[in-house]
């Protein structure tokens, strides 16, 4: 359900990734594509390169020579820039606090793509739609009371998903007890994708 201006979501669903627990197997990346865009399993995301997934994998090396890994995705920001810039209101927030796309209102201008500080979107080569977390498959899983595909697929329990408004949810408990951060905290977008830094 699309929230009207001024309405507050009843839940604030959020993703959490534990970088200390992650073993970098990419099961979440592949399960995301398999669940949400199975037609892209054997096709690359031509724009960004690599697998066409709503989860993006970045690799680098620190000054000490230590390899470092980042998994990134849509943060369903509380002040989502993509919602503000979309000319036709195709990007909206639902009752669960998720930032979603109404394909009927999307003309494919890709303003949401350039508006996202996290480069979380990729453009589907067949439909021209700007894709991101959460896809249709995961939305169906969440509606059925399950966790999204990436959380279910992770063999190291490095991922979680839950309601920030519920103090007893697993994500709320983790965020209360473990050191964590968000990406580009000064972006002003108030992202809800949390990176936990300790096991």
């Amino acid at each position: 359900m699309r929230l009207k201006p001024g309405e507050q979501p009843t839940r604030r669903l959020a993703h959490l990734w534990n970088e200390a627990a992650c073993i970098g197997c990419a099961a979440c990346v592949i399960s995301c594509t398999a669940t949400n865009n199975p037609e892209m399993l054997y096709r690359a995301d031509e724009g960004r390169g690599g697998v066409a997934s709503n989860i993006r994998r970045y690799e680098g090396v620190t000054a000490q020579g230590r390899p470092t890994l980042l998994l990134n995705q849509c943060a369903h920001c509380d002040e989502a820039p993509c919602m503000k810039t979309c000319p036709f209101g195709a990007v909206y927030r639902d009752e669960n606090g998720l930032v979603r796309l109404d394909s009927r209102r999307c003309a494919g201008c890709r303003y949401c793509v350039t508006s996202c500080p996290y480069n979380a979107r990729w453009v589907h080569p067949d439909t021209g739609l700007p894709m991101k977390c959460m896809g249709r498959g995961c939305l169906a899983l969440v509606a059925a009371g399950q966790k999204p595909a990436c959380v279910q697929a992770c063999p190291a329990n490095a991922r979680d998903f839950g309601d920030l408004n519920d103090p007893e949810s697993s994500v709320s408990r983790t965020l209360r007890t473990k050191r964590h951060r968000t990406l580009l905290p000064n972006s002003g977008a108030k992202p809800k994708y949390f990176i936990v830094e300790e096991v």
């Binding site: 036709f88 195709a90 009927r104 209102r105 999307c106 003309a107 494919g108 201008c109 890709r110 453009v123 439909t127 021209g128 739609l129």
Partner: peptide, 10 residues
Amino acid sequence: LGRWWNMPLV
């Protein structure tokens, strides 16, 4: 536009 054909519906 990647979906110019969708403009009437938009």
